[in-house]
Amino acid sequence: MGRDKIDENVKRRLYAESMGRCMNPDCQRELFMSNGDIVEKAHIIPYCKTADNSFENLVVLCPNCHKDFDKNYSFSPEEVKSWKKIRREEVDKLFCKKFASFENLRKEVAPLLLENKIIYESYYLGNNRELWDKFEVKVLANNRKLRKLFEQNLYLIQRHPEESYSNLEYIFSFMQHVDEFETTRSDEEKIRQILFPREINSMFGITPVKDSILPSVESLEMLITKLNEENKFKSIVMGINDPYIILKEDGKLIKLLLSDTPRLRQLYFNYNCFSQTKVRLKSLNYAFKYMNFNGISYEFLKYNNLREVSVYGEKVIFIYEYCLSKVELMQLSPEENSIIVNLHNWNGRSCISDQAYKLSEKMNVTLLTMEDFYEYINKFKN
């Protein structure tokens, strides 16, 4: 009578437990090679005595250690069983590290996420079931490492009381995904499983996730200032459908889309840049898009002030007020001959008070609604 097959869920737990290496602490040979795996499953207490295919009675070994255990009797069952405890302690030591900054955590996490992404896209999405079945075990091992890293560093992840605004919720979702991924195997279960939250790859700079642009221009300006202090900020491109920042990371220049919300939200958290929204970024970008569309060039007066630009020698200041008042205009203290554009156009010409218009004449500045702004741009165009 033949042996019962080892349950697939047990195999997956064993693969995850091994972290991709032989469980013999004196060997630790890599089990999952580019040309296929060399993993072998050994019964700690012989199957012929117990018919026990449980997780507790199985261990994954390389072929050499399996032979030394089963045929050469180089290790006792008690010793082999202790390897499970030793591996747990090794994993805790290596991947239960606490980091002082998100940047240090990112450097540990990003390579694991990238490897998982490559395996998933190459074999699972590529409909190569044979290779996926081989390399899925590598994903299981990486997921276990990632879970340990996240558990110890939750304090570095941006959070918000509203779940849809919280990167921490994506981390919790990933942990659930890892647990279910380890304990499910059939195609039906795979369809039902908690999906990998793609926002995780965004947070750690693997793949952007296009979402709504975070509204605060002031927060973005603060971030640019902090990045520049670390010599990471290179430039910003606005006035296009997908505005972006060019920044230096890991010795390379990368493009950070301002619509990559999880990543940008995490950076705001890292650098403590969350600020009350006064000028809305989407509205400001629309004004720049209108200038670009009409061939009107402009330049920022300061690298970290996106609200003030020079248009053919004239200083243009963008604000966002439901109704610009006399007091608010005084607080702006604009230079003479400045052009002030109110991006808030919901209430038409009423977005600028009569008192503000009167004061602007004395201050020798020009106040424009968005309708006026269109005419102002067309003046240059013509």
Rank of each mutant, 00 (worst) to 15 (best):
D4V: 13
K97C: 11
E218D: 06
R198K: 13
N142A: 05
E89Y: 03
L227P: 02
M175V: 05
I352G: 08
T183R: 05
R87A: 01
S202N: 13
F196S: 05
I45F: 08
D52K: 10
N292T: 05
P208S: 04
N272M: 02
R198S: 11
T369I: 04
M1S: 15
N231C: 04
I254K: 13
M330T: 12
H43A: 07
G205V: 04
L329D: 04
D133G: 06
V39L: 05
M291H: 01
G348C: 01
D260K: 01
E163D: 15
K278S: 13
N116L: 00
C48H: 15
A100Y: 00
G295K: 10
D211P: 00
N116C: 03
D68F: 08
N305S: 09
F69V: 09
F172G: 02
T366H: 09
E163M: 07
G205C: 03
E308C: 06
R106W: 00
F172Q: 10
D4K: 14
E89W: 00
V139W: 04
S186Q: 02
K11P: 12
I118Y: 13
V311T: 15
L359A: 09
V109P: 02
R198H: 14
Y322C: 00
G2V: 12
R106M: 09
A42F: 01
M203G: 07
P334T: 08
T207P: 00
P111M: 02
A16M: 03
F75L: 06
E78S: 12
G295R: 08
S74V: 05
E361I: 12
S173T: 15
D260Y: 02
G20Y: 01
P25A: 07
K190C: 00
H66L: 03
H160G: 08
I317L: 11
Y123R: 03
I86S: 08
Y286G: 09
T207S: 04
K107N: 13
W83E: 06
R87F: 00
Q355H: 09
